[in-house]
Design a protein around this nucleic acid. Structure first.
Length: 526
RNA sequence: GCGCCUAUAGCUCAAUGGAUAGAGUAAUAGUCUUCGGAACUAUUGAUGAGGGUUCGAUUCCCCCUGGGCGCACCA
């Protein structure tokens, strides 16, 4: 990796400071702020020249090394270099986690596609990755659902769709505003469920079956496969031992009939309610314990919305109190909301993912009516995912129909299109791709050559920052540079065909690798 | 009330202490007898307010204002 070599060289010359890519390319490939010039720099394989300006040492890399690094991208050597970063380390990532009996909303999409991208990024960096879909399949919400089904269900549960279930759930909330007894009834039914009541369990199981079927359809559509689906109910028989551990550590307090854990700088977390039923906090603690015992991870990542930031901090802090060793991180992605601020999910006014996909597919069809269904779908999903992935995860997303379906400019389809464009040239040309760095390059060509090697750095940065957006931004920049080049020069039939093929081929390679990391499909033609 | 996040161009986003704050979109004017126009070129346009730290602040600290989320029997 060039950056590592450069760091070594700087050390040899006793130059300290953060190396960075200058804001403008005319200041070189890298720069270090030293404040004063440094004399007698040692000879080196990678540095072509340096120049002191405005407090910076600007550094230009040798084209020979740029060529070598570029050629390596995607090869075994390259993969091996990346893998060194995380070799021997294990991470578990908790993502997607839709709730049973509720359609897959765009909120869960965010968790799903960011989580999957982080998984892919850590994996290419050599980590052993375990994806765990922690389904919301337990809790008082089922008490509510059972009450609603028994009171207002007009057909047998097993024949209901997931939308029917959602409608009933929403109705429960509306009715319970006036009828206060409903909440109590729901809690009683949940207690029955926890005590393995036959009727409650039967209804619960049927709701699970309906939901899983729907989720599988969505994951298939999104091209997402999560290693494990261990919902909350999986931990039912694993909670007692956690309670015992907490008792032994003396961190469990009794308060108003409930069992809680208190923290110094946070509100308390409840493990057991006054009626004896368990909470999702306790199930989450059992989950951490199970993950440790099963996979012994170094790092556990939660890809969960910012609305559960406190809950996550309580889990992390409690784990620390129990002396558990993994590092924890919560992506705490921002909420999706309208431009005017409101996004009322409680009132049943959610946006379902299927609706977004349908609309995006219509849009993709308008642009290219001749494309088959498969390509239309890949473009539509590419647009939707990219919209999510290209923004800093922790910021809220303003939901905008036009932007979600955008297929121009900074968009997934722009990248897919650029890739297809490259492939089209590569398929037409009969020549080998090859670059001779002694030839004088056009500035658009040189811009490309000086962009390729950064890919590796961006993957590492994305992992450090838990932000796939770092890669998304880079790919947009690369595609833009390629299209600038493309608009100005021809490839096929020119004297310079070989080297232009090289630039085209390398651009395509990175776009494909990068999009794959983001979980976005590429196609040869579109 | 307390805690966490957040404020950059008309709109949606970049810039994680550095050089001239970058893109997309919208608007306007162009490029092309297209190796694929889902493209390219050009013009217009921005750091919420006030302090502080620093050689240097969109970035760090304080305060004010606006927005989002959370704060025990939902998950």
């Amino acid at each position: 990796m060039i950056k590592k070599d450069l760091e070594r060289w700087l050390q040899e010359n006793k130059i300290e400071g953060k190396i960075e890519h200058p804001s403008i390319s005319k200041f070189g490939d890298y720069a270090v702020r030293t404040g004063k010039p440094v004399e007698n720099l040692s000879e080196n394989d990678i540095v072509e020249k340096t120049e002191f300006m405005a407090g910076f040492i600007n550094i230009w890399l040798k084209k020979e090394i740029l060529k070598k690094e570029t050629e390596e991208i995607g090869t075994e050597v390259w993969k091996n270099n990346l893998e060194i970063n995380g070799r021997g380390k294990t991470m578990v990532i908790d993502y997607s986690a839709p709730n049973i009996a509720k359609p897959f909303g765009i909120g869960h999409l965010r968790s799903t596609d960011i989580g999957q991208a982080i998984y892919n990024i850590y994996q290419i960096l050599g980590w052993k990755c375990i994806g765990d879909n922690h389904l919301g399949d337990w809790g008082t919400q089922f008490g509510k659902l059972i009450v609603a089904i028994k009171k207002w269900g007009v057909k047998p549960v097993e024949t209901m769709s997931i939308d029917d279930l959602e409608t009933l759930y929403v109705k429960f909330h509306q009715e319970s505003e006036t009828d206060k007894d409903l909440e109590d009834e729901a809690r009683k039914w949940f207690a029955k469920l926890e005590n393995k009541d036959v009727e409650a369990t039967d209804i619960w199981q049927k709701c699970i079956d309906i939901s899983i079927k729907e989720f599988d359809r969505v994951y298939e559509l999104l091209g997402v496969k999560i290693d494990y689906v261990l919902g909350e109910s999986f931990y039912l028989d694993k909670m007692d031992s956690v309670i015992e551990l907490m008792e032994n550590k003396g961190i469990l307090k009794h308060s108003e009939g409930a069992k809680i854990i208190e923290f110094e700088n946070m509100p308390p977390a409840m493990t057991t309610k006054s009626n004896g039923t368990t909470t999702y906090f306790l199930r989450d603690m059992a989950t951490v314990k199970y993950r440790m015992e099963t996979w012994n991870p170094d790092l556990i990542i939660y890809e969960i919305g910012a609305d559960q930031e406190l809950h996550c901090r309580q889990i992390f802090e409690t784990s620390k109190m129990l002396g558990w060793k993994p590092q924890f991180y919560n992506v705490a992605h921002g909420m999706i909301r309208w431009a005017d601020g409101k996004f009322s999910t409680r009132k049943g006014h959610t946006i379902h993912l299927s609706e977004v996909i349908d609309k995006a597919m219509e849009e993709a069809k308008k642009i290219a009516p001749d494309n088959d269904e498969k390509k239309i779908k890949a473009v539509a999903i590419g647009a939707i995912k990219f919209n999510d992935l290209s923004q800093d995860p922790k910021k809220d997303i303003i939901f905008d129909w036009e932007k979600v379906m955008s297929m121009e400019g900074n968009s997934g389809p722009y990248l897919q299109y650029t890739y297809a464009r490259c492939q089209s040239i590569l398929n037409k040309s009969k020549k080998n791709s090859e670059i001779n760095v002694d030839e004088k390059l056009e500035s658009e060509e040189e811009n490309l050559l000086r962009e390729f090697y950064k890919f590796e750095e961006k993957i590492i940065e994305a992992a450090d920052r838990f932000s796939p957006a770092v890669i998304a931004e880079y790919l947009i920049g690369l595609a833009r540079k390629y299209n600038e080049f493309y608009a100005k020069f021809r490839v096929i039939g020119e004297e310079t065909e070989k080297r232009r093929l090289f630039l085209t081929e390398r651009t395509a390679k990175i776009l494909k690798l990068g999009l794959t990391l983001l979980g976005i499909e590429t196609m040869e033609k579109m």
